[in-house]
Nucleic acid binder design. Structure first.
Lengths: 213, 213, 213, 213
DNA sequence: CCCTAAGCGAGACGGTACGTCCGGTCTTCCA
DNA sequence: TGGAAGACCGGACGTACCGTCTCGCTTAGGG
């Protein structure tokens, strides 16, 4: 997000306490009140922190929210590039692989559906989504730090299936991932209909088999 | 949005002039400054209208934006009144049908891609999308008045292909529509990558043929 | 206030019902909510009258209040010049005359004190006073229609005392009236101290006897 | 008005610059446009200050006006802080004392008359008077901070005359002050007649000599 | 006895100001 | 020197009234 973490050298002593207080407050407020009423003023107050402390370390409300999300989702580190110590949880994770790609995809997508149906996660994720939608910088950050690792995981599972001959050898895995997950996201974000396991299953089946007879 | 048009009875009717001025101002401002700087105060000023006139007839900034979009997209009516005079443009329209479903889908999706790449349309549509994402009422309105007609059109073309034996007889057309268009929307809204004809073509081909070998 | 009453000729038929409803509403609202929250909108609503009916017949909020005061204070007529039929109540009234000017003055001033201490009268009169203080036109009207008759009454009693040799022959009665009543008004309007009979009595005694030894 | 000036403790202290800008703007605007068009919005704009800065430190428009009047009338301090540094100008002042109470009173009252006839002073003072008339809190403040010192000055001169045997030994000086000045105020505020030196002279003479023969 | 013009209630309109909230910046003190 | 505290300017929020302006309706003349 920002630079910081000039390890020793000059001086630089960002308060870890404040950082965590801000991110925690942001995350909780997002879950409680949603995007519309989420204010930097409110975050600072809830965190017991001066507003300047937020402005000093984050460029925008979305950036705070993003870091908060990162902290509570992946291991911890939040933002500093430093950390090979934190991202591991994502790196080490893997999608289930029972050998049956259709079943495994359904398992994962059902989990996504359940998550999006949880009000707390819904509000947080919705707030983040909205920030991303109108802040290109944040979108890039999101793509790189949150979306890319997730997409890698998905592609890894698809690649395994491909190598097992269950998917077409010339399948573009990025397109495949979009084909499966995007409809879920759109239906959720724009509330175009109920987000059910049935819908997710239909997506998997249709995407796998294709629309042709 | 609102009802109005109690033809006689009470009295004092809504000013059509003001209504159009507001919607025009909203549409133009959204295209010019984007969501973040779109204010009711600004719309009122640009429209030469008292703020109360906006608050009187629309429940939220998003509702104004929605009506503006509706007015400039479909024929006219916006919300009240006209009735059977306006919705026709959408109803009467139809997707191209050359007999080749793959080619026709690409044609339509290329057009969508081009639209989303146009900065003016991008800003307007993005503003509307964001409003929809955090206003369930507006989302319902959008689903009903803007999304449903478009989806009907798409499904009509798919149904024709289905009847011609080019698509599976048991294909769920709603799922099919989502499969094709959602990835476009997500990539656009979250700026996950360049929105190109190539990408759209890949989507069509993969969705039609399926991911399996 | 206004002209109206072109008896026949064109047409002109002001609704007496509305006039009274407006004045009653104004008077009651002034007594209930005081000057600060007294609005033409509120008066119209309470009177069940269109705002235009007020703007048509009165030039200002103060004018309405003035007429209301006039109607509920002196007999009735309100404003139309027509009426030699209404002012009589004031004309016919007279201050008490027991032959003892000091006692009589105290009686009258005690009554004034009591009136000003009554919350309902206080609020109404205060609202009117404030309007008068920042509207020269209204001030002129007030001086002519409400203040002058009252002053005449007072001067009449003083003149009687003067003729009876109880007051100096060369006493300027207007100055005398001011000397007696103004301190009461100022103390009341600016809340400079408690408005008591004692204070009124002291005023009368000092004014009569003078400040010299 | 307000307290403030917690010298150390918390932090962030009030801007003296803003305070003076607000009071200056209020004073000038009151003199220029009068009570009716005096708005907090206007004061803030003219002072180059955020509205919140006014709302933060003053409870009402009248309070601002009062402080403005205080600052431009007595030395300076306005309300908070300074303390013993400001009130002196009034304390040290004194009414003229030539030994002739009648002449001295006329001198002072002529000055008052001239002041009230000055349009700038008239508008300012009228605005303040009106605010006082409908705000009891402000009235108390006014009585204490502006009226009391002035009254003290007047009583001091009257007391000197009393000790010199020119006034009755048992004269209530407060009543005497009211007797002399209130008629001036009422005639001015309600515009009951021309405010002339003649009128003031008549007041002094009548009050001194009494109404009796 | 109808016709017509007014007054009427209702209330929308373009505006101004209200008092509040928040965004970002700046300043002061403490640790 | 980073951080808490919070004042500051700016500007949008949503509300309340202002004074003006249609609307249809009602009603009282004059034809």
């Amino acid at each position: 997000m920002t630079d910081q973490r000039r390890p020793s050298a000059g001086v630089a002593r960002r308060s870890e306490t404040s950082r965590r207080a801000v991110l925690t407050a942001a995350f909780e407020l997002a879950a409680e009140v949603g995007y519309a009423k989420l204010s930097i003023e409110g975050i600072a107050a809830r965190a017991g922190v001066g507003k300047q402390t937020i402005y000093r370390w984050w460029p925008s409300k979305g950036a705070v929210l993003f870091d908060a999300f990162l902290m509570f989702t992946t291991g911890e580190p939040g933002e500093g590039g430093g950390g090979e110590g934190g991202g591991e949880s994502v790196e080490e994770a893997a999608l289930p692989d029972t050998g049956d790609i259709e079943a495994d995809l359904k398992t994962v997508m059902f989990a996504t559906v359940d998550e999006l149906n949880d009000p707390r996660y819904d509000r947080t994720m919705r707030a983040l989504s909205i920030e991303i939608a109108h802040d290109a910088d944040l979108a890039a950050l999101y793509a790189e730090r949150l979306n890319r690792p997730m997409r890698e995981l998905k592609k890894r599972r698809l690649r395994a299936a491909q190598e097992a001959g269950q998917l077409a050898a010339d399948l573009d895995l990025d397109v495949a991932v979009d084909l499966l997950w995007s409809p879920l996201l759109v239906r959720w974000l724009h509330r175009e209909g109920p987000l059910t396991h049935e819908y997710a299953a239909a997506l998997v089946e249709t995407a796998l088999g294709g629309m042709r007879p």
